[in-house]
Write a protein that binds this DNA or RNA. Structure first.
Lengths: 108, 108
DNA sequence: CATATAATTCGAAATACTTCGAATTATCGA
DNA sequence: TCGATAATTCGAAGTATTTCGAATTATATG
């Protein structure tokens, strides 16, 4: 498999990190931040996340790295800023993995 | 929600525990152990898991408790034995939670 | 009741995780 | 180029997790 389910579950297993992920996914491909984002209107950047959560920048940076490591999020530099982009394919893959485990109990 | 996604992800985030879960789900509702189980033929028991994995009984017991705590597995005494039963509803709920996060990026 | 088997609890050791603040690196704008 | 802003790295403290072995509890059987 392209994504390691254990790494994905580990990334999702911390409440702060899960909320950060949701924030990134929700503001992912939209202009919903309506100009509030100092980075761009098509994504969240580190600063947006730092502004949203009551955690030190270094902590946010660490969590972001974990999300990237697992494949759930992609990151790219945009000048001074770091764009955080959802990678739904990874989350989808993990969900499908779980469905397979569910199905392994079926028809028995 | 009936199940806490973070608790479920935490339960799934350890490689040993994930394998144990899969073992329980696969032997869940079947007679596939074909009499090999010293507990029963409709489920796995602690001893089956202990026999399958290279971990101390106390460690297996601990992991089983975590799986029960998260809701992924149900446990019931059968005389001397403890039956381990899949609770696919919980795993399904977590998978659906993930799908919702995936969908939160859609149509944008 | 005594012994054997199954499983849990307890305490301890090693490791990993979470978080912070301080120092550092990267980039932008005047 | 210099100062400001954005983000990362580093080291440290506190906490949680993983695993074990020994002791304990629960149940079955002779």
């Amino acid at each position: 498999m392209k994504y390691d389910p254990v790494e994905i579950f580990k990334a999702l297993s911390n409440p702060s990190r899960l909320e950060i992920l949701k924030f990134i996914y929700e503001s992912g491909f939209t202009g919903t931040l309506e100009g509030e984002s100092i980075c761009c209107e098509q994504c969240s950047c580190m600063g947006d996340v730092v502004g949203k959560f009551n955690l030190a920048p270094s902590t946010i940076s660490h969590h972001a790295k974990e999300l990237v490591r697992s494949g759930l999020v992609k990151m790219e530099r945009d000048g001074q800023y770091m764009r955080l982009l959802p990678n739904p394919e990874a989350l989808q893959a993990a969900a499908e993995y779980m469905e397979k485990v569910v199905d392994s109990t079926k028809g028995k």
